[in-house]
Design a protein around this nucleic acid. Sequence first.
DNA 1: CGGCACTTTGATCGTGGTCAATAAGTGTGG
DNA 2: CCACACTTATTGACCACGATCAAAGTGCCG
Lengths: 240, 240
Amino acid sequence: MEGLGADADICLKCGSRSVGLCAPLDVAALDDMAGESERHALDARDVIFHQGDPARHVYTLTEGMARLTRVLPDGRQSVIGFRFAGDILGFTPADEYAFGAEMLTRGTVCRLDRRRLEHLFRRYPVMERRFLDLCVKELAASQDHILTLGRFSAEERVAAFLVSLAEAQERRGHVGAVFDLPTTRADIGEFLGLTLETVSRAISSFRKRGWIILHGHAGIELADRPALMSLGSGEGADAA
Amino acid sequence: MEGLGADADICLKCGSRSVGLCAPLDVAALDDMAGESERHALDARDVIFHQGDPARHVYTLTEGMARLTRVLPDGRQSVIGFRFAGDILGFTPADEYAFGAEMLTRGTVCRLDRRRLEHLFRRYPVMERRFLDLCVKELAASQDHILTLGRFSAEERVAAFLVSLAEAQERRGHVGAVFDLPTTRADIGEFLGLTLETVSRAISSFRKRGWIILHGHAGIELADRPALMSLGSGEGADAA
DNA sequence: CGGCACTTTGATCGTGGTCAATAAGTGTGG
DNA sequence: CCACACTTATTGACCACGATCAAAGTGCCG
């Protein structure tokens, strides 16, 4: 059986292994956190928090996949991003959540009161640094996404999405060629700034080229990953 | 003469007032920083750092306006964002800068060695918290931009940009109706995911509607700000 | 088996991109 | 001070990508 490796963390009291948040804490710190968080099991489509809710808690997604959405005054909606096991949700210095979070699959979250998190920061300053690094990394990811939305064609965006989805799952220990695709075409479209029809056409086109193989509705295999990666990383037409 | 108000900061040794970074530091801390940073005067178009350079320094922009750009392997370029007096540039836990930074106007930056910043973090933990809050705010701004790129039409994007440019200048003490527009149409287009022609058409259209008045090539007056704000904030067609 | 949600595919339309020509500033040297 | 070159902005004509509208097709759960 797997022990707790160097980069395997205890997530709060949930006891599940998670990715990266608590690694630099010692046992006393982990015990401390354990007493202050609550675990919640959630089904697909369950809401973790709504956009505009008072930001009273910070969540760690310990199992499953979630999407972050933001709505405009006129009702247009956009998926800001997707989150996986080990990711932090809802950390903000503001009074309200700027976006909503919903589960895409069954899963579990750990909920920690925001004031208690501040307390933990004071007691274990290294944790604050951890949050800062996570935040900077997330900022870099956002900027990547800005580039994607601003400069990529429809097929390039879908290719980039599929590859990054596979990479996210591999980083979390997924093995094998078939990945989960728990999002609808509409979700992917709202994330990539496309309509669901355009997403569907791109996926069909990849399938016809033999780049991907669909396994039912929730499984996908990247059969020609280099092709997808080169399309999805802005190598454009200059790949001689 | 103005004293150092509650939210006026000394930026490192530069001595200029800045916006928000050092506010929670005491005099000893400010002295400490003063000894460790260098001020540099820059002209328009001067490069602060290149994408891919080793990330050895962190910069505070103390005067002027800068743009952050990112290039793709195939040469496509995108403007990730603009930065103003008081903003931090180039803070990253990675080894290299993920984007480049260039001045749009004359101005000055303060350069602080990265290892010295880490040292300051250890001595003045409140500074680290300051960086964390800044980072989360910047993340929220990036997500706004993602929404803009993913869901807004060309005119909506340009309207949102003009309003946010005006707001950024007002937050930094600008008074009067005429704002600086030190960016080219191409810069705005690369920021908004549009071509320079489309930006030009949007601006012309606003001018013809009387919403803006251009003063030379670098000045702009928002004559009907509510109209621009409602267009640029996603109120769509439902504004009865 | 029926109902429902999601996906696929097709036909048509429109926004914004592309290509091109002109105009308006801006800076430099005669 | 003006002439010239150069950069940036504007405007027009045309085109393509992706949106929109519409209709089957597919798989899942009761």
